[in-house]
């Protein structure tokens, strides 16, 4: 407990100091509050508009989970497909890099044209940016199975499918979880960018607040989205830990 306190205390002290200086700078009028509202003003706004913030956060969360779920299902399936059919990998994988490199803000308007305003566009946006890490990590995990275990399996001459199910997928689980951890942050970015263009959720709340010059509400939205992303990453970490406690999925037999 003391060790944990010693580890975490500096960060909390730094945050407290930062908030105190921020509050002081604004309350003394050294920075205009319409440019940088005081932490206390942001807190008041968050309490006052908690219902709107909560509903926007839930809407964003839903889009993130849809996008991430689709990325997981399609990413893992595609990786297995690429692993099984090398020609499919050579034909399609180079184009999947598009998903990693595309500036989502640039294609969001296109998504609106295709899917209209609303959730579908937001989910598509979250999906596009979060697909590649899951796909790439799963493929790496499938390919990097311990050669000693592969040799063990070959002794029993199993079908390709049995090897995938009983060896390659379980040994890829740590890689898939690592991919999921990267993708969850990206899906949050994708969803909020999508909401800027297609409406709804925290993205729309921030955008509306900007047009109304409600900088306090912009900060409240930014804070809500940061907390949401943080909680999602922590959830993935917790899921990973629970899974690993139940079964020690690891690459090597030694």
């Amino acid at each position: 407990m003391t060790a944990m306190l010693r580890e975490r205390l500096p960060a909390w002290l730094f945050l407290a100091g930062l908030l105190a200086v921020w509050e002081l700078v604004v309350s003394r009028g050294w920075v205009a509050s319409y440019l940088l509202p005081a932490p206390s003003d942001i807190w008041v706004t968050m309490v006052e508009l908690r219902a709107e913030l909560w509903s926007a956060t839930l809407s964003t969360l839903s889009s993130i989970l849809w996008g991430l779920g689709a990325s997981f299902a399609i990413g893992v399936s595609l990786a297995i497909g690429f692993f099984l059919i090398p020609v499919m990998r050579r034909a399609i994988l180079p184009f999947c890099v598009f998903f990693q490199t595309v500036p989502i803000i640039a294609i969001a308007p296109l998504l609106v044209i295709w899917f209209g305003f609303g959730d579908t566009t937001v989910r598509a946006s979250a999906f596009i940016v979060s697909l590649f890490p899951i796909l790439a990590n799963t493929l790496t995990g499938l390919e990097e199975t311990d050669p000693l275990l592969r040799e063990l399996f070959r002794l029993y001459r199993p079908s390709r499918w049995k090897t995938i199910i009983k060896l390659q997928i379980p040994s890829a689980i740590p890689y898939i979880l690592a991919g999921l951890r990267i993708s969850v942050g990206l899906a949050t970015i994708g969803a909020i960018v999508g909401e800027f263009i297609a409406g709804g959720g925290i993205g729309n709340l921030i955008d509306s607040a900007r047009t109304q010059q409600r900088v306090d509400l912009v900060f409240a939205g930014v804070l809500a989205s940061s907390i949401l992303a943080l909680l999602l990453v922590l959830s993935i970490d917790l899921l990973s830990r629970l899974l690993m406690q139940r079964r020690p999925y690891m690459r090597s037999a030694r």
Binding site: L148, L152, P170, R247, P248, Y249, M250, S252, A253, R254
Partner: peptide
Amino acid sequence: VFQEPRLVPW
């Protein structure tokens, strides 16, 4: 039987 146990860790 291999030189090492070579058990599947999970």
